[in-house]
Nucleic acid binder design. Sequence first.
DNA 1: CAAATTTATATTGCGCACAATATAATTTGA
DNA 2: TCAAATTATATTGTGCGCAATATAAATTTG
Lengths: 147, 147
Amino acid sequence: MDDENDPLRLDRQVCFPLYAASNRLTRAYRPILDRLGLTYAQYLVMLVLWEEAPQSVGSIGARLHLDSGTLTPLLKRLEAAGLVTRRRDPEDERRLIVTPTETGAALRAEAQDVPMSLCEALGLTEVEMHELAGAVGTVTRLLQHDT
Amino acid sequence: MDDENDPLRLDRQVCFPLYAASNRLTRAYRPILDRLGLTYAQYLVMLVLWEEAPQSVGSIGARLHLDSGTLTPLLKRLEAAGLVTRRRDPEDERRLIVTPTETGAALRAEAQDVPMSLCEALGLTEVEMHELAGAVGTVTRLLQHDT
DNA sequence: CAAATTTATATTGCGCACAATATAATTTGA
DNA sequence: TCAAATTATATTGTGCGCAATATAAATTTG
């Protein structure tokens, strides 16, 4: 009831600005990634695959903290778009091996300036981008106490 | 191709940790809010309404940066749960006035210790919580250059 | 005052995110 | 060795988040 210290006031919520910031980022990415025909989550999966391929659904998920409920349909859409192939690992038929197609690998070149475009879309200088990276790092470190 | 400075490496993405942190937070809130029968987004709407009621869909949306595409079905679910009423403003039939029911208002008492429970679920001390608030504030400030 | 414009909410459609559960392959161990 | 436990992915169902569009009420203008 003592307004000042009410823990339920929206402007006292530590986590709401993080939620709002994350939504805002996804919105900012959208017009940029539209040019590549990718959603933000699909872009993240392609980043992971461009770094190392092939990879199983599980290893992609471990990297992005996403589970098969999210990844299975997403990967099917990437497959339907001709960007990846999905086949079972003959060594272990439980595993599904995801590999970028030639088109999917070539898309990497188109994606080169996505980070810079986003920077511009957010109206951030390189210095501010570094500040942001620092603050985001602090948030991440603090939230990784658990798992 | 010069691995070190490749702007497409996942660990060079400033925004991915923010996305991951936001997902993690929603997961952390879930078991706590389950006890109130609320999702995280519904909890945010109730916070806004507990602060000031009644409010129109538009004013709730302005506060949370959400649009009617998100809020209309969410508010219908809150109405179906008996937590709010929805009626047109007789002064301006375009507006929809959202008001907590007695049950909805009473739920506020049940929610009092949600912030503390979350803090515990994240394994954060009060000092760390303040650090987190500071870092989140920096992120918010930097991302508010645009709108 | 009527037509055009603006404003507020609703609807539709798509793609996550995730809990819960299912299925099938592999591994373990009595 | 074979039944139980474990592991990997898939499926189902719910609820966002948002772009695009629709609808209807209010406001502005000519």
